[in-house]
């Protein structure tokens, strides 16, 4: 299943709807890079609220996505990491270094706006 990408002003919003396979996650990364390049988005929100697991592959994919988007001039913010998921990630040594985070979609958009201001 492809993750829908919405455009809101200068920002792109990708709301993950269900657990993703590695392939689907890589697909999302490619789609976002493609969209961001075409629309000249200034920021991207990746909403992971529904993910009940964030393993090393997912974390690595999000990190590399953020770095590539940065090269395209777009800021990335990952929102909605659940308490249990955050706990497990830290135990695993995954800290999403270099990636901005926010509580939820609303906060994520506010973060991007504050950054642009």
């Amino acid at each position: 299943m492809r993750v829908p990408i919405l455009k809101q002003g200068e920002y792109l919003i990708a709301s993950i709807q269900s657990a993703l396979t590695d392939q689907e996650l890589s697909q999302l990364k490619d789609d976002l890079l493609d969209h961001a390049g075409r629309t000249r988005a200034r920021g991207v929100v990746v909403d992971v609220t529904v993910l009940d697991v964030m393993d090393s592959f997912a974390a690595r994919t999000l990190r590399s996505l953020a770095h590539m988007l940065d090269l395209l001039g777009a800021a990335t913010v990952v929102v909605g990491i659940q308490p249990e998921v955050a706990f497990a990630m830290v135990q695993l040594g995954l800290t999403l270094e270099g990636v901005s985070t926010a509580l939820d979609l609303e906060e994520g958009l506010a973060f991007l706006q504050a950054k642009a201001a």
Binding site: V53, D55, S56
Partner: peptide, 17 residues
């Protein structure tokens, strides 16, 4: 606990991958 459930699922993800 819900935390341990997540921890277990994450560990499975790593070894399965």
């Amino acid at each position: 606990s819900s935390t341990d459930v997540t921890v277990i699922a994450t560990a499975i993800s790593e070894v399965a991958r």
